[in-house]
Simulated scan of single mutants.
Amino acid sequence: MKLFRRLLLALLVLIVAGYAGVVGYMYFNQRALQYSAQGEVFALSDTTLTAASEVLIATDGGAVNGWYAPPRPGMPVIVYYKGNSKSFTEESERYERFVADGYGFLAFDYRGFPASPGEISEANILSDALAAYDWLDAETDAPILIWGRSLGSGPASYVASQREATALLLETPFLSAVNVAAERYPILPVALVMQDQFRNDLWIEDVSEPVLVAHGTADRTIDVTNGERLYARAPNPDELWIVDGADHSDLWDAGIWDRAKPFFDRSLNR
Rank of each mutant, 00 (worst) to 15 (best):
L11C: 13
G112V: 03
E119N: 15
S127A: 15
F105E: 14
A43F: 07
E90C: 04
A232W: 02
T89C: 03
S208Q: 07
S267P: 10
G104N: 12
D253Y: 06
R229D: 14
S36A: 15
D137Q: 12
E205A: 08
D247F: 01
A181T: 03
R266M: 03
V213Q: 02
W241Q: 09
P235F: 07
M26P: 02
A10M: 03
E209W: 10
V79E: 00
S153G: 07
D247T: 08
G154A: 06
L8V: 14
A218R: 14
L188M: 12
G227M: 13
F28H: 14
E93C: 01
L251Q: 07
L188A: 05
V190K: 07
R259I: 02
F264N: 00
A63G: 11
T166K: 07
T89S: 15
V99E: 04
A107G: 00
Y27D: 11
F42C: 02
L49D: 04
S127L: 04
A123N: 00
L169C: 09
A20D: 02
Y68C: 01
G83K: 12
D247L: 08
P143L: 09
G154R: 00
P235I: 04
G74M: 04
D265K: 13
E54V: 10
P155G: 10
G152Y: 12
R111S: 13
S127I: 01
Y81C: 01
E122R: 01
F98R: 06
L56E: 15
